[in-house]
Amino acid sequence: MTEDLLVTDDDIILAVRAHVADQELPDPATADDVRAVEQMVGHPMPRLLRRLYLEVANGGFGSWEAVSLTDTGDWFSDCADITEAYHDFADPEHPLPPGIVPLMDRGCAMWALIDFKTADGQMWDWDPNLCCTAHALAPLEQSLTEWITDWLHGTTPDGTYPQRETTSKNCTAR
């Protein structure tokens, strides 16, 4: 989906709040929570993601429920919070590129990740089931705004993203 230029971050925040209104999500994160994650990652959080955590909830929003910034007692993955998820990806053999942060656990070792180095929060996919961990990471060529808008419209697919380029097709680790 191409980004709807008429949709503002304010519109998205209001739509996400309405979408999750009937869910029992954690209270919003604090500015200190955001700063601690930014310090750990070494890059500022993309503006829309920052606002979602500060103005909607400290986790639980999105099609696969964003991991909380801190342990809220409501786990949205096998990890208590985003710090634990980030450190779980610290594999010396296949590290994530700097600034790429696990955001949503899709199950079966698959994750939706976000690039903190990009102002619009470019989304990434992690799926080691396609071949191996060396080929698990691939860019989605979709911003967080586009990804959240797709989710709000009910078009975020379950399973592998359709725009994911299969980088593992020539993998010899199979």
Rank of each mutant, 00 (worst) to 15 (best):
P98D: 14
T149Q: 11
A138K: 06
L152A: 03
P98L: 02
L5Q: 14
P98F: 02
A136C: 08
D4A: 05
L130V: 12
A85K: 10
D81N: 15
Y86S: 08
A173E: 15
L14N: 15
L52A: 11
P139T: 04
D127R: 08
P97D: 04
M40G: 00
T72A: 03
D150P: 07
G107W: 04
Q142F: 00
I13D: 09
S143Q: 06
N170G: 05
L25T: 12
G107T: 06
S168L: 00
V67G: 02
S63T: 08
R35Q: 12
N170I: 01
H94T: 13
V101L: 13
M1H: 13
I82G: 05
G159Y: 04
A90V: 00
A80C: 11
G60V: 09
S68K: 05
T30A: 04
D120P: 01
D22G: 08
D81V: 01
T155A: 03
L113R: 14
W147M: 01
T145P: 01
G73W: 05
D91H: 13
L130R: 15
L48I: 03
A112Y: 09
T30K: 05
D33M: 06
C108I: 10
P98K: 08
E24G: 07
A57N: 03
P95Q: 04
E93G: 00
G42F: 07
C108F: 10
T133H: 12
D81Q: 07
L52D: 10
E24T: 15
R50N: 07
C131H: 13
F116R: 09
E165H: 06
W75T: 04
C171K: 12
I114M: 12
T172K: 14
A15E: 13
D32K: 15
T83E: 14
H87C: 00
P26M: 06
L49F: 12
T30Y: 10
L140T: 03
S168V: 00
E55N: 05
D27V: 13
Q142I: 01
P95N: 06
P139K: 12
T160D: 05
T167S: 05
T8V: 03
A119P: 04
E38N: 09
F89M: 09
Q142R: 15
R106T: 03
F89K: 09
P162G: 00
G121C: 03
W75N: 10
T83H: 15
C79K: 06
T70W: 02
Q163T: 14
V37E: 02
A29L: 07
V37H: 09
E55L: 11
A36K: 13
L54N: 09
T160S: 08
E146F: 01
L5C: 02
A36W: 02
A31W: 07
M110G: 04
G73N: 08
